[in-house]
Amino acid sequence: DETGKELVLVLYDYQEKSPREVTIKKGDILTLLNSTNKDWWKIEVNDRQGFVPAAYLKKLD
């Protein structure tokens, strides 16, 4: 059920640097789980959840 889920576009590649982070690729469109922290957003990638720098993402309307 995708209702109410926010999507984000990945602006730059990011390689995870800790187990709490996930790797993302430029151009991916992913589900945003939590954006309350202005610097690190929690997203879902391939059934994995983790954090990436918010500056690497853009919210889609």
Results as ranks from 00 to 15, higher is better:
1 D>A: 12
1 D>S: 13
1 D>Y: 12
1 D>K: 10
2 E>Q: 13
2 E>P: 12
2 E>W: 12
3 T>R: 10
3 T>M: 13
4 G>T: 13
4 G>E: 13
4 G>C: 14
5 K>Q: 11
5 K>P: 12
5 K>T: 10
5 K>D: 08
5 K>W: 10
5 K>Y: 13
6 E>D: 11
6 E>C: 15
6 E>N: 12
7 L>N: 05
7 L>Q: 10
7 L>R: 14
7 L>V: 08
7 L>K: 14
8 V>G: 02
8 V>S: 02
9 L>T: 05
9 L>G: 02
9 L>Y: 11
10 V>E: 00
10 V>G: 03
10 V>L: 01
10 V>K: 00
10 V>W: 01
10 V>R: 00
11 L>I: 08
11 L>F: 02
12 Y>T: 08
12 Y>E: 13
12 Y>M: 13
13 D>F: 04
13 D>I: 02
13 D>Y: 04
15 Q>A: 12
15 Q>S: 10
15 Q>H: 14
16 E>Y: 05
16 E>I: 10
16 E>Q: 12
16 E>A: 15
17 K>V: 08
17 K>C: 10
18 S>F: 06
18 S>C: 09
18 S>T: 13
18 S>H: 11
18 S>M: 08
19 P>W: 07
19 P>E: 11
19 P>S: 11
20 R>I: 11
21 E>S: 06
21 E>W: 04
21 E>F: 04
21 E>N: 05
22 V>C: 10
22 V>Q: 04
23 T>L: 02
24 I>D: 00
25 K>D: 03
25 K>W: 15
25 K>P: 01
26 K>T: 07
27 G>H: 05
27 G>I: 01
27 G>P: 01
27 G>R: 02
28 D>I: 05
28 D>W: 15
28 D>K: 06
28 D>E: 15
28 D>V: 06
28 D>H: 10
29 I>F: 05
29 I>C: 06
29 I>H: 04
29 I>A: 02
30 L>K: 02
30 L>I: 09
30 L>N: 07
31 T>G: 07
32 L>S: 02
32 L>V: 07
34 N>M: 08
34 N>E: 14
35 S>R: 08
35 S>V: 06
36 T>C: 12
36 T>P: 04
37 N>R: 08
37 N>W: 07
38 K>W: 07
38 K>Y: 08
39 D>F: 15
40 W>F: 06
40 W>A: 02
40 W>R: 03
40 W>N: 02
40 W>M: 06
41 W>D: 00
41 W>K: 00
42 K>P: 00
42 K>A: 08
43 I>Y: 01
43 I>E: 00
44 E>C: 11
44 E>Q: 13
44 E>S: 09
45 V>N: 08
46 N>E: 14
47 D>E: 13
47 D>I: 06
47 D>L: 09
48 R>W: 08
48 R>P: 00
48 R>K: 10
48 R>C: 05
48 R>D: 04
48 R>M: 07
48 R>T: 07
50 G>P: 02
50 G>H: 06
50 G>R: 04
50 G>C: 06
51 F>W: 15
51 F>A: 02
51 F>L: 07
51 F>D: 04
52 V>A: 12
52 V>W: 01
52 V>Y: 01
52 V>R: 01
53 P>G: 01
53 P>M: 03
54 A>M: 05
54 A>I: 04
55 A>S: 12
56 Y>H: 10
57 L>T: 02
57 L>K: 01
57 L>W: 01
57 L>S: 00
58 K>A: 10
58 K>I: 11
58 K>R: 13
59 K>M: 08
60 L>E: 04
60 L>T: 05
60 L>K: 04
60 L>F: 08
61 D>E: 12
61 D>W: 10
